[in-house]
Amino acid sequence: MQPFDYVRATSVADAVRAFGAAGPDTRLLAGGTTLYDLMKLGVETPAHVIDVNGLRELETIDTSQPDELVFGALARMSDVAADPVIAGEYPALAESLWRAASQQLRNMASVGGNLLQRTRCAYFRGGEPFACNKRAPGSGCAAQEGIDRGHALFGGSEACIAVYPGDWAVALAAFEAQVDVEGPHGPRSLAIEALHVEPGRTPDVETTLAPGEIIVRIRVPKTPLGRASTYHKIRDRESYAFALVSVAAALRMEGDMVAEARLALGGVATRPWRVRAAEAVLRGQPFTPALARRAGEAALSGARPGRMNAFKVELGIRAVADALSIARQRG
């Protein structure tokens, strides 16, 4: 690991000031489960690291507000997953957290930092000699003609087909969460869907955060869609693995009719992948297994598989249908 300069921030203002002043080769250290991991691999090589774990004011979990759930960026994944309101009223949010990683890592990882988790693409993480435009812009993309079983069906470009690996952001996308940031130019708020960007020609740029900006809060509008929801995650093993396909599904039923639906996919796209066309298939229709399947087909339509991941299209369709059935049983 390259030597770096380490400081502990004592307040959000302190962190913003330090982050803004320190320049582009600076990283914020929250849970460390992505950053420190990638530093050990030599993929991240910051010269400056600002530890924000002391910012206790960012650890809040507040479910008592009338209109929204508020999560401080440094609330830990395990704590949010275990919150009784979240677990009971928003099972998709809770499941997206406890089905990620292991309890050890969830005790460490923050819900703000988790949004910025970087891809698991082996060509990205493996360093030399693999071509990777995300890690080494201009070097190419080894995954395109390589082992792409875990790579994206959606949102890829010639420069990059690496999957966004997170679960939580996928569930947040289904619930139209807002992300509050603080930066050198003051606070701002953006929709979760406006946080991540597709790789395009610049796969090294993964978010719309400006230099020096810090995620401080995640807000989820309270919604009757919460209860009839699930985060359904299909993996190569039963636990402690990244998704082959995952589905955040939420329904608001009126009798047997779907009044409103939310669907987002994980494990198959370069960013959290909300599928509004599939939601439209469901809206106003009586819920049946056949309808759930049609929603799955709509969700996976337009997929662009590579050499080894075509199976994820059918798997995704079935996972969507199953997720909708689980959500339906909860509403």
């Binding site: 698991r120 082996a122 493996g126 080894a142 390589g146 082992i147 190569d236 039963e238 636990s239 990244f242």
Partner: peptide, 29 residues
């Protein structure tokens, strides 16, 4: 049901050289 060491013929060696991508059985399996 789980384990395979992946080989990319363009590079040689093994690709999934860690315990996240080389899937050993976990307790839940």
């Amino acid at each position: 049901l789980r384990e395979a060491s992946e080989v990319d013929p363009r590079y040689g060696g093994f690709l999934n050289a860690d315990l996240a991508e080389y899937a050993l059985p976990v307790n839940a399996d």
